[in-house]
Design a protein around this nucleic acid. Structure first.
Length: 615
DNA sequence: GCTTTCATGCGAACC
DNA sequence: GCATGAAAGC
């Protein structure tokens, strides 16, 4: 593999290292080369733990490693996200932690259902659901919930700790973990059991972490617990740290040298992606951040261009963007090589409209996750109910999907039939066995239960086909969908799901993976659906991507920087890094634009534009 | 009369 | 996609 001098130095270094990898500097390439190099040196690939930020990145890395080393995919079992790796560890020690096997992973849907129930029990307004869910998540990711609740005691008039305790015990009772618990319980396991910790420490001969700037405190602790005295190789770019709002702590990156004494720091400063005009302008912006590592990013490519547009309204701004797109398209640049980036997703509307009326195809990234779509949730809840009898959230969803005449009141009645420690499904089974229900309801439930029982032993794809067939799901979808196109898309999603599921041997395996994959929002389904179009996305969702032409729109005060992130210098710096990420997505042409009037508000042009034009 | 279903309006930050 | 209230069904 061809490597630059800076890349090679990092790859061939023995011992712990931090690679400060500028935007477009070939970060993944270096990381992959490093692993290949280690294998070359005799490290068994099975014992290399390589942490990626998303599952997609893990797959990509494994693909590259296969090509590079000629080894099979299965030889890299520990190229994973933190969550996926920790779950592998956690499941092996389930009993020690008081869980039965298998543990169920609660995704957002299940989590929200559970918290909703608790809110009802505490008589708390539903409007707090999101804030409470976020607080619980942040508490866990801080590594120390108790300490977190000392600083953030309540949301509205409610004591967070009480809600948290109730939530945790409910999860445990259902033999389930949420996404954050996968990390926190693994941390507890490794922290509290020296024998297990030592086992993993001696097993992993090398630990590599990608996107290290976005690690949170809990992940950092996990890395240390697994590391022991072994070698650590971290890669990232503090200038692109944009997840502080959800607990990422860039200080682990900035203080790497203090934390790992004999570690060496490497810099990869050459940008292979963007033209130098763009790189140096982005540098100019990021210089306004005080809290950052020094790095001299440059590019040997020239001929790029930056243009700044200022408009009265977002509609005029959108019109200008579309004009530029058409102009560049006439020069032979495909629309699929153009991206429109904005701070918040509500900004997308005028651009969607302008693109549509100009007849330019487009796709929206970072849309709702595949696994959070109605039709996918419906099917997955059937599967989950077949495997996890205590999974009330799933059973409650499927009990009346499609409509069987079983509403909230009937569910309440059925809940009263529960047996101690059992779930709603158990209650239904009892009610059916004792024949205490009206014939119509009884019949509907018998049909449902026999379906659930029948699919339990099937292979996942066969199980899905059976569900779709026996509940006439496509009819249900057709009635539910607002347009014919909507119906087709949903139907295709199901077909996509069947295809994905066919790679698994049993239901449990499939369900576990589906739960862990949920984090990837830019999914294959939407990519396949509309290849060839321009991309619209939030800046967050654009991370790691690149476009020949980039439009960063909505460059206004209170939007970028966002009004919720302007109180502290820390937050403001993160907003600036966000702008930096947006700019460095561009290979050749970068357009920055603002509208004085947007969404009923007047705002001045973003300070970030002033910062780069003031030079 | 109780329960479910249907129709309508409103609002959503970043993952 | 959810909360709300009116209409339909058992």
């Amino acid at each position: 593999m061809e490597l630059s001098e800076q890349q090679r130095a990092a790859v061939e270094h023995t011992g712990s290292a931090l690679v400060v990898a500028g935007a477009g500097s070939g970060k993944t390439r270096a990381l992959t080369a490093k692993i290949a190099h280690l294998i070359d040196k005799g490290y068994p690939p099975e014992r290399i733990l390589a942490i990626t930020f998303t599952n997609k990145a893990a797959d990509e890395m494994k693909r590259r490693l296969m090509a590079l080393t000629g080894l099979e995919m299965a030889r890299f079992p520990w190229v994973r996200t933190y969550h996926s790796a920790c779950y592998q560890i956690l499941r092996r020690h389930a009993r020690l932690l008081g869980f039965a096997e298998p543990i169920q992973i609660y995704t957002v849907y299940h989590q929200q259902k559970l918290i909703s129930e608790i809110l009802i029990a505490f008589n708390i307004d539903k409007k707090y659901l999101h804030a409470i869910r976020a607080a619980i998540s942040n508490a866990k990711n801080s590594g120390s919930p108790a300490a977190y609740f000392d600083t953030c005691k309540r949301i509205g008039p409610f004591r967070l700790e009480d809600i948290y305790d109730r939530y945790e015990s409910a999860l445990f009772e259902k033999n389930a973990v949420d996404f954050d618990n996968i990390l926190m319980l693994t941390r507890n396991l490794l922290r509290d059991h020296a024998d297990i910790r030592d086992k993993y420490r001696s097993y992993f001969s090398y630990i590599l972490v990608d996107e290290y700037q976005d690690s949170n405190d809990l992940q950092e602790e996990l890395t240390r617990l697994l590391l022991g005295n072994g070698n650590l190789f971290c890669v990232g770019d503090d200038w692109q740290a944009i997840y502080g709002f959800r607990g990422s702590n860039v200080n682990h990156f900035l203080n790497f040298n203090d934390n790992f004494e004999n570690a060496k720091i490497f810099r990869m400063e050459r940008n292979f992606r963007s033209a130098d005009e763009i790189v140096s302008t982005a540098n100019q912006l990021i210089r306004h951040n005080r809290h950052r590592m020094d790095k001299a990013c440059f590019s040997n490519k020239t001929g790029g261009g930056i243009e700044i547009g200022e408009f009265f309204s977002d509609a005029e701004e959108a019109e200008w963007v579309v004009d530029q797109m058409i102009r560049l398209n006439r020069q032979g640049i495909g629309f699929d090589r153009m991206g429109i980036l904005y701070r918040t997703k509500f900004c997308s509307l005028p651009f969607e409209q302008a693109l549509r009326s100009a007849g330019i195809p487009y796709r929206m990234l970072g849309d709702r996750g595949f696994f959070e779509r109605k039709e996918i949730l419906d099917i997955n809840c059937y599967l989950a109910a077949a495997v996890f009898e205590k999974d009330d959230a799933s059973f409650e969803r499927i009990i009346n999907t499609p409509k069987r005449g079983i509403g909230p009141k009937m569910i309440e009645n059925l809940n009263r039939c529960r047996i101690e420690g059992g779930g709603l499904q158990g209650g239904v089974r009892r009610a059916v066995a004792e024949k205490i229900l009206k014939p119509k309801i009884h019949g509907a439930l018998v049909t449902l239960l026999s379906l659930v029982d029948d699919i339990a032993d099937m292979k996942p794809d066969q199980a899905i086909r059976t569900i779709v067939d026996r509940i006439d799901y496509y009819d249900h979808l057709h009635a539910y969908s607002k347009t014919e196109g909507d119906y087709t898309a949903r139907r295709e999603n199901i077909e996509q799901l069947i295809f994905a599921a066919s790679k698994y041997e049993n239901l449990l395996e499939y369900i576990e993976d589906a739960a862990l994959i949920r984090e990837d929002k830019a999914d294959e389904a939407s990519e396949e659906a509309a290849v060839g179009g321009a991309s619209l996305s939030t800046i967050h969702a654009s991370k790691g991507l690149e476009y020949h032409v980039v439009f960063v729109v909505g460059c206004e005060e209170n939007l970028l920087p966002h009004w919720k992130s302007m109180e502290s210098e820390e937050e403001l710096q993160e907003e600036r890094r966000l702008m930096y990420v947006a700019m460095t997505r561009a290979e050749k042409f970068l357009f920055l634009s603002s509208a004085a009037y947007r969404k009923g508000q007047y705002n001045p042009r973003s300070r970030f534009i002033e910062e780069i034009s003031a030079a």
